[in-house]
């Protein structure tokens, strides 16, 4: 009885894994096909139909390296902003007592439910038209500069540190900055990785905002240039699906690799605490 139940459970989980992973497998197989083969046999690699040609083809239309570099700068800027300003905000919201702390915490939670897309028009008018920041990294980074979920994760970790630690440091004569720098920050290093991973997903995968703000191809993150390729250019290549999927592999690989390597820092409890506050 329990045997069959366990077997059923594994069967269910395996079917789930197949459904989630197959498109990625198919992405790689498809990116290596000389001619697109949508038949069932085409789902298996065929040595007679393997080529690296698609990667060359997409690289001719979309500068893959430049796109990756732009995505990297965009993502790096956001991560830097989140780590620098997010940790100190998380620290202030957990360890320090000051007027307005409660209101600020409510604000952090509130910001999570405001859909970014709804701010698209006013932000576009402000950043592109008023500040003249279109086609610049700063304009891309600004609306994402501090990830609010990361602030909550930092706060959660700081809350778990024993208060005696901070009191002891104060008695030893350490100033508040000293306590933050040499006591608190080194202890939240695990949270740092979780927060960085979580923050990474946003800008690396973001399409709408950089799409609005960058018209110059040399500044577009890879997600934007690949999307432009899919919607405008793909039809003019000899194997459009192959080229599209080659680009998709290049865009997906860094994120997937990062999340496989650091999977143990991306666990349910952190996320739960992050979302629930």
């Amino acid at each position: 009885m329990t045997r069959t139940r366990t077997a059923l459970r594994y069967l269910l989980l395996a079917v789930g894994a197949l459904v989630f992973l197959f498109p990625f497998y198919y992405m790689i197989v498809g990116s290596l096909q000389t001619a697109p083969d949508p038949t069932i046999a085409g789902a298996f690699p065929n040595p007679a139909n393997v080529t690296g040609e698609n990667y060359v083809a997409i690289n001719e239309r979309v500068n893959l390296l430049q796109g990756l570099a732009n995505s990297g700068i965009f993502t790096g800027g956001v991560i830097l902003g989140t780590v620098v300003f997010g940790t100190i905000a998380g620290y202030a919201l957990s360890v320090l007592k000051w007027r307005g702390r409660g209101a600020t915490l409510v604000l952090v939670l509130l910001v999570q439910v405001i859909p970014f897309q709804l701010l698209m028009i006013p932000l576009y008018v402000m950043i592109a038209r008023d500040y003249g920041l279109s086609d610049s990294y700063l304009g891309m980074i600004l609306p994402f500069l501090i990830n609010s979920t990361a602030v909550l994760i930092f706060r959660q970790y700081f809350l778990q540190l024993p208060r005696e630690l901070f009191d002891a440091a104060r008695i030893d004569g350490a100033g508040e900055f000293r306590i933050l720098w040499s006591v608190a920050l080194p202890l939240v290093r695990p949270a740092l990785l979780t927060a960085v991973l979580l923050t990474f997903i946003g800008p690396w995968n973001e399409f709408l905002w950089p799409f609005l703000i960058t018209k110059e191809a040399a500044l577009q993150p890879l997600a934007v240039s690949l999307a432009n390729f899919i919607s405008n250019v793909a039809a003019s290549t000899s194997n459009p699906f192959g080229a599209m999927m080659a680009g998709a592999v290049v865009l997906a690989a860094p994120a997937v690799a990062l999340f496989i390597i650091f999977q143990r820092y991306f666990v349910s409890n952190d996320l739960g605490s992050g979302v629930k506050g």
Partner: peptide, 23 residues
């Protein structure tokens, strides 16, 4: 299992859209 379930979540929509268009 955990990792294979969240792989689509951490991948850019633009990338997986390409495969879905093909599929």
């Amino acid at each position: 299992f955990r990792v294979s379930y969240y792989v689509p979540y951490v991948t850019a929509s633009v990338a997986v859209v390409a495969v879905w268009l093909f599929l």
